[in-house]
Design a protein around this nucleic acid. Sequence first.
DNA 1: TCATTAATTTTGACAAAGTCTAAATCTATA
DNA 2: TATAGATTTAGACTTTGTCAAAATTAATGA
Lengths: 139, 139
Amino acid sequence: MQDPETTLRQHDLPVTAQRLAVLRAVAHHPHATADDLAEQVRQKIGAISRQSVYNVLNVLTDKGIIRRIQPAHSPARYEDRVGDNHHHLVCRSCGLTEDVCCAVGAAPCLTAHAHHGFKIDEAEVIYWGTCPSCQKKPR
Amino acid sequence: MQDPETTLRQHDLPVTAQRLAVLRAVAHHPHATADDLAEQVRQKIGAISRQSVYNVLNVLTDKGIIRRIQPAHSPARYEDRVGDNHHHLVCRSCGLTEDVCCAVGAAPCLTAHAHHGFKIDEAEVIYWGTCPSCQKKPR
DNA sequence: TCATTAATTTTGACAAAGTCTAAATCTATA
DNA sequence: TATAGATTTAGACTTTGTCAAAATTAATGA
């Protein structure tokens, strides 16, 4: 991703220390939660309110600058890899999240057929499993 | 689904009025939330505590008698259609949820490849869109 | 049928993740 | 540099769900 300041200006968003820091944190820590990101930002700029972290994440998500994913049993996670159709692989045990490219491009069953009269705009796929590290742990 | 009482006994679960009522409510109202179900149960048997609704839903889910789905921006929803591989179609606007059969059976990209060393046990698919009724509403 | 034991239900406190509001502060512009 | 509008902050609040202890109920055997 390009310079965070440029990104913000391109989207008509006033540039603030909080926005820059959150955007950088998302870029450096893909799939982090709002809490994780707040922690990262505090290490960089000293302080940020919880509300501001949410404000910034929401406005960045709305503008399509970042993407929010919300697996079950997990708070929302954020990533700056937007615009492609990748999916996610989530560890049931520790929540570790990895990107997964669709192996065959547009898979047949993901085509947005006009099921039930819905206007479908996204097919979200989450693969659930156990990560290598959790496979090794007892029980 | 068969007689709820038989179902409970088959799974070694003591039969209680609360369990019977919750199980019937799930059968009659697929994709309902815990709150919705509590409401339905109260109309049938008069009263049930919030905790009991959760207790029952959790034990039924653990036993595989019902299935829990948790789309983003929504509390958990429950259904008694278990054991097949159907997916869901959710309205972004009102949360209306419909079942979707995978049109082509086992789709290529849903095969559990050994990505990143994970042991994959489920490919969850949620189609997001707008339901017919919400398409008609102004904005 | 009744007593007993183990499980379930209830009540109320608590927790996590987010949102809402108003006041204070800051950014962008002229 | 002053100003207007947007952002940030602080703190209360909401929703969804869990925890723990006491009270109640179901299943079993005598």
